[in-house]
Design a protein around this nucleic acid. Sequence first.
RNA 1: GGCGGUGUGGCGGAAUGGCAGACGCGCUUGAUUCAAAAUCAAGUAUCUUCGGAUGUGCUGGUUCGACUCCAGUCACCGCUACCA
Length: 975
Amino acid sequence: MGTLPSISEWIPVRKNGLVQSKHIIRSTSVPRYNPAEIEPRWQRFWEKNKSFHTPDRVDGEKFYVLDMFPYPSGDGLHVGHPEGYTATDILARFKRMNGAAVLHPMGFDAFGLPAEEHAIKHNIPPRQSTEKNIANFLRQLKMLGFSYDWDRQISTTDVEYFRWTQWIFLQLYDTWFDESLQKGRPISELPIPADVEAQGVDATREYQDSHRLAFEADALVNWCPALGTVLANEEVVDGLSERGSHPVQRIPLRQWMLRITAYADRLEHDLEQVDWPEGIKKLQRDWIGRSTGAEVDFYAGDGVHFGNWFANRSQSGLPRKLESNVLRVYTTRPDTLYGATYMVIAPEHPLVTQLTTTAQSAAVEAYCQAASSKSDRERQEDKKQKTGVFTGSYAINPVNKQPIPIWIADYVLISYGTGAIMAVPAHDIRDFEFAKQFDLPIVAVVQPSPKAKDIDHSAVLAGKSCFAGKGTAINSGPYDGLATEAFKEKIIAELTQQGIGRAAVNYKLRDWLFSRQRFWGEPFPILHELDETGKPNGKKRAVPESMLPVDLPHLDDYKPHGRPEPPLAKAPKEWLYPVIDGVRYRRETNTMPQWAGSCWYYLRFIDPRNSQQMIDPELEKRWMPVDLYIGGAEHAVLHLLYARFWHKVLFDRGVVSTIEPFKRLVNQGMILGDMEFTGYRDSNEHWISSEFVMEDENHQFVQATDRSSVQAVKLEPDQVEKAGDRFHLKSDPSIRIDSRAHKMSKARGNVVNPDEIVADYGADALRLYEMFMGPLEASKPWSMTGVNGVRNFLDRVWRMIIDDRQDNIALNEAIVDREPDDDQIHILHKTIKAVTQDIENLSFNTAIARYMEFVNFFTKQVHRPKSIMQQFILLLAPMAPHIAEELWHTMGNPNSLALEKWPAYEEALTVEASVEIPIQIQGKIRAKVNVNRGLSEVELEKIALADERIAEFLVGKTVRKIIIVPDRMVNIVAN
RNA sequence: GGCGGUGUGGCGGAAUGGCAGACGCGCUUGAUUCAAAAUCAAGUAUCUUCGGAUGUGCUGGUUCGACUCCAGUCACCGCUACCA
């Protein structure tokens, strides 16, 4: 190797365990472990040989393992991404080696705001920047050696992909929900009431339109002028847009909605069938927020006519269309009807004007005006102080016939229930606060159980304290003495009979606001018919399937203009005004939200290039459901709920065969930045102990005492010291120091870039480290020295097999072709068993610990049997595939190990012949003995009592009892 | 306020109710080296009168035996926020 530079000049210096040089250069012919050389080589090999091609046939077990596909941002991959991706990759490789047919695809969720913002800022079409970002993501993903079947790669922005997103939208448009069957059915099967039919074709069409799962409605929407779009409730955080934190206003606008509420019950119920973390299921249940109770009608017209109205109702029952002088409320506590001392309607309630008396009109108008201009955030800030205004009108409580005042307040939401409530201040905390505020009467009608502690019973009965629990009815006329549940049942039955109420179910879940006023999203395949003057006449139709996809037109200008008119309205005339069968239309110019594409991508992966169908039903049956789905908990509710909703509609329409798409779900935890110590100093550079520092509203650090600002200072580990469970300054122990790991963020400057880790340590080291950090589901701090640790382990694996002191690659002289001894066989089988079970349980950190134990053992062995080394390499392959392939190859195997058979173990060989047994007295270990495995209780007892030390301890004591767990321990109870 | 999660060495973390701290990082000592780095070996919870004693956020309980189960409590993290 004479011409090569000596190694020492080229190998970077590792100081304090960390790579100091950014650029590791290693000679390629020197047989050191060199991931920079072997990793790209094996990646090319896999790609060229299509090693991870999805099998066309599934004979035995199938395994569909899926990652939540990423949004390809301009920043590239974050270290959080490879965590879940490595976990699924390990499973995919493991299952392949176990003979399963594996589907393991990857793609990109590439529609969305950032690309469009970028387009506007740099005047580059979004498609162009998206493609660039995807290329970068692809490079990064491939550099990590994931075994995806790249032939199945899709992006939601591919025209051939969103063609089918549009197709699914048309299925939603063509479907109505049959309540009695709890099933979505074709709109052509919707029964049309005779009176509607009698009104003609247009009325029938309107009736149909109002029943479709995809429908247009006037909605109070979250309009964000800065982003130039309407946002879903979920995309608004604290009254600001989730993305960019711009203010959001509520304005009424005609929008496309998806009737997800129709599926609320099924979405909730079917959670029972999936293997998901209980926490996520609960989040979904809470989000759906099913509650049961009653709707009750309150007469709010002229008091003299109440008697007539009431009598009529018991004849006619609940009317199909509510009279204009009746307020309908929803309550979960119809048993508290006697305690309803006033009513509240939302500021947006349709009866506001009608119910407002002349005397109150100025105050009411001012209040409603203020409420509408208030963002949700501002409303929240007032939360402690309830606001409201009296309408001047009264309604009549139908049970006790008392007139009660009707108020308007923004603590009642127009979007939930009926937008009106009966207020029972004695038993609802919000009503109680409001009643206190405005001095409204409080009448207790539920007596808490006398057994209930922590309740001031007399205060509750006096209306001085609020009690929201269950109890016994009082002040409730004929119902006095009834328990809450029995009361509810009884009164609902009676209200129903009287025609003034009925049982009702409500959901927190709202219909899904599905349109966005942006360019970079799927166009709606909907056409609005134009009249002779070129104006929409209100009729609309679906784009015929044969004319899909509806591609995005080219625009010269993507900028939003601050009005809720979508950018597509500026599209060229040829695109905007198609003519079909001689009829001129205007295209729908809204686009779909980013969620749309991710709602069904798991289906397209099964049949990604099908130009005839969204998915071949045979393939769908073969691969669905997704067996394991791994992703971040941030998608716990929305993505998973939306995808499940679409899936159920597709199921109803016969497109898919399973009722749930994702059988098993696992959330990987968040990866935080490296542990940091933070001290604080005031403006005079004096240290301030951290318990006196707080964060103010603007996230600035201030002194708790006088709110003067303090400076956060990052400290080195050797400047701090631990005492008890706190850290303090070494130089001044009275100064407490904050120690914790923070979420990675550009602002904090603690973001770790996978490119750098791969360059410095290799992809296998990155993969292994991310799995070794801790349990997959836990959030855990990054540590550079930890990465270095697993890299050292890989170096040790390499040296266990390769002789790195030779000039050329050669096996370590300890590698021999001979029969292993008993200890070696035992270690091997123990390792196989542990690693196999750990991988199956997704407990990768402990599996890696088992690898390390194996390597620690065998590097001390003078003879390392080849057969055993080969088995170990196979065990290592799912986690660190590149080094495993290289070692496998070096040991003389011509083929990739990707489809080699996973090592098997023999149970009998996993245990040692002898076992050390602790002998306890009163639960404290007093001695240990080495005995043969499998001794009986009698034998163990004999051995324990015969032990010298034990005998010593038992002097003067009586043995009361001896507990023996064979092969584990002996506990002697004596006194 | 509500819901969920987590508390174990200097750090990340292991432990079917049965030897707490596997494995790794860091640190200490030694070998090797002209010297580093790398490597290899040994050690590394606390206190100790060297017999032991004490230790899994805290207080109780169940048990022969509790990091593990139960009740209460504190702290931190995450999500959520007037849903009648």
